[in-house]
Computed example of a mutant assay.
Amino acid sequence: MGTTPLGSWNDGAAKRAIVDFVTSSAAEGSPGFVAPRDRIAVFDNDGTLWVEKPVPVQMPFVLGKLAERLEADPSLAGERAYRAIAERDESYFRALNDQDPDAVASMVEAIGSAWEGTTPAEFEADAARYLASWRHERFGRPATGLVYRPMLELFDHLRAYGWRLFVCSGGGRDFMRVICEDTWGLPRENVIGSAPEFAYRDGELVRRAVLHGPVALGPGKPEYVLARTGRLPGFAAGNDDVDVELLRSARFALLVVHDDDVREYAYDDSARRARAAAERDGWTTVSVKHDWKTVLEERHPQEEPSAPCQ
């Protein structure tokens, strides 16, 4: 705790609010004290921990799988997600990108049937192969190079004060678990998200087409957090409307505002309700443009060169 925290953050209201809250949370007897057992910090993933534009990292992985199935069985075009692929329905993909609950639910259903009957190891092998070859169209980086350095520093700062960290995302839990340990330094069991039911067949677990609980969006987020941890978060961070319920459930709420189209992207198309809630409820807002000295994590040695992001 002796080093200066949050080195990639500019000095300002957001950094001061975070440091003050985290420091006071460990000061027994102070009004802001949080008992160690209650120091649960929960983060959304897409747009909060890593770049989500122009499309979330997982989307091409999923769409590629569904396109293969549609080619093999054109009758699948009767289902909403497959029909959108067949018709190249941009409105549907925009709805997915904005994490519209109805669109996401239809996609989750399609994903469930696409990998039904596969083992956890088989699904993870598919995801790992995709992640090994996928690169961001603008930055030329793999998914692991799209993580926001300031958020990783926030992880370290919270850990130093005894906070336990979790990720809760509407994206696939099992997809995120492939990279969580190497990318975020989080154990797999601390990743929460939309996931299928499993069945035990012929001596091994296999994925079912049925979703385990609700999609982890909106009210589903605090529901999943409570089911996983037995507590609601003391600290929560998100970036758009589907994070509002998670942020409202926390003692300290942090909203990431994407307003830097030079080093990242500027957009608010799916965050207007969240920004209104932040202003009304006094949440701490983080401007990518003004609060972060650096946006992306340092490059990994295996990455190819690309334009600097500082």
Results as ranks from 00 to 15, higher is better:
residue 8 S to Y: 12
residue 192 I to D: 02
residue 160 A to P: 04
residue 260 D to R: 10
residue 133 S to N: 08
residue 190 N to W: 01
residue 64 G to M: 14
residue 174 D to N: 10
residue 113 S to C: 13
residue 25 S to E: 04
residue 167 V to H: 03
residue 143 A to S: 11
residue 212 H to G: 12
residue 146 L to F: 03
residue 149 R to E: 13
residue 202 D to Y: 08
residue 30 S to G: 12
residue 171 G to R: 00
residue 220 G to Y: 02
residue 300 H to S: 08
residue 216 A to R: 02
residue 54 P to E: 09
residue 97 N to M: 06
residue 7 G to M: 11
residue 177 R to V: 12
residue 258 H to V: 00
residue 193 G to Y: 00
residue 219 P to I: 00
residue 109 E to K: 07
residue 70 L to W: 05
residue 253 A to L: 10
residue 138 R to Y: 08
residue 83 R to Y: 04
residue 53 K to Y: 10
residue 291 D to K: 14
residue 295 V to L: 14
residue 60 P to N: 12
residue 97 N to H: 09
residue 1 M to P: 10
residue 279 E to A: 12
residue 213 G to H: 07
residue 218 G to D: 09
residue 15 K to E: 07
residue 136 H to M: 03
residue 141 R to I: 00
residue 57 V to Y: 02
residue 64 G to W: 15
residue 233 P to E: 05
residue 133 S to W: 14
residue 189 E to Q: 10
residue 272 R to W: 11
residue 59 M to N: 10
residue 217 L to C: 07
residue 136 H to F: 03
residue 160 A to K: 11
residue 139 F to L: 06
residue 279 E to T: 12
residue 226 L to A: 10
residue 116 E to Q: 10
residue 168 C to S: 14
residue 239 N to V: 03
residue 51 V to S: 01
residue 40 I to V: 15
residue 234 G to K: 00
residue 220 G to N: 04
residue 226 L to G: 03
residue 105 A to P: 05
residue 156 D to P: 06
residue 46 D to C: 11
residue 8 S to K: 09
residue 191 V to K: 02
residue 143 A to T: 06
residue 231 R to P: 02
residue 97 N to I: 10
residue 144 T to R: 15
residue 309 C to T: 15
residue 274 A to C: 08
residue 70 L to D: 05
residue 294 T to W: 08
residue 135 R to K: 15
residue 3 T to R: 14
residue 124 E to A: 15
residue 216 A to I: 02
residue 290 H to D: 15
residue 110 A to Q: 00
residue 77 A to D: 07
residue 11 D to W: 15
residue 112 G to I: 11
residue 92 Y to F: 15
residue 88 R to Q: 11
residue 289 K to Y: 10
residue 139 F to Q: 13
residue 78 G to R: 08
residue 163 W to N: 06
residue 68 E to D: 11
residue 279 E to P: 07
residue 127 A to K: 09
residue 302 Q to R: 13
residue 266 A to R: 15
residue 154 L to P: 01
residue 233 P to G: 06
